[in-house]
Amino acid sequence: MLGGVALIAAIVLVGQTNTSFAQAENYPNKPIHVVAGDGAGGPIDILNRAIGEQIQAMTGQKLVIENMPGGRQVPAAMAVKDAAPDGYTLLSVTQNAITLNPLLIKNLRYQPLKDFAPISLLVNQQHAISFRGPEGTNWKNWTFKDLVEYSKANPGKIFFGSIGIGSGSHLAFEWMKHKTGARFTHVPYAGSPAMLRAFRAGEIHLFQVTVSKDVKQMYDDGFAKALAVPNKGGNPRLPGVPTYDEAVAEGYAYLPWTGWFAPAGTPKPILAKLHGMVAKIMSDPKWTERFVVGAGFLPVTSSPDEFRAYLANDAPNHKALLAIAGIKTN
């Protein structure tokens, strides 16, 4: 009896793998829909549209970007959760949807690693701490340590901006305060444009920012200075700027990322095929310079299994940082 069940199960399993291999063979044979948790023209959106063009060149199939911005990417995730797991509906989101939402939102209606199959990481953000000191100080010569000393001597004088509680731009400073005893005051903004305006106007002195070309320009013009970069091994665009490990303290592990997911149950060969395509696109330096690096990202790809392992590690990291920042988590 048991043997019979096992036999049937084995047949079914073999059958399934066979069909899924067959599916992967001629995949894709119709347009692939990517639900992006980002508004049109946003960084994730542009990245996906640019990838879409490359995929169309490779396979002849279009990548249709469906924008479902906002809602902490919950609407986007929900739209893909119940889609057919055939590789024709994908999800492109950031750490917010996968790592942060389960920690911050009560009764979240999806379980990231159960409802979605990771396909590949796409990019990490290239950050830097931008700094412009208060008037009347020789801030241009300061290191991060000098800034910490100044903030301790002048409490309530140094303000840092962020694009919201729990964002990387917020957690980085909470971690720095925790590690160094610096006295920075937090000023949240609704988005980077508003924060950039405030920085330009001298309302805030510090913010963590994606090093896109216009930000780089700000450093080159001497308007601001990059105090530190979170990346291991430094930021290739900002040689000579110390890493957090060097300038602040060791152990900062928060790198905002953007990745691709499929509904759980999508055949593995299809996931592998998609990852292969992404890896190939990301290995073209001319293309990445234009669509990835220029916007302040680093191209990073990882196989579905690597990505899953990465995500398993991501959650405790975030949780620890949120605890440092005093944010209640689920």
């Binding site: 950039l196 216009d214 220029g294």
Partner: peptide, 23 residues
């Protein structure tokens, strides 16, 4: 390089995709 609205932010990203720096 400070966009006042979403549409303006898209204009900025177009500049950057073309390797131009607003400012």
């Amino acid at each position: 390089g400070i966009p006042g609205s979403v549409v303006m932010a898209i204009m900025l990203s177009v500049l950057i995709v073309h390797g131009l720096v607003p400012g």
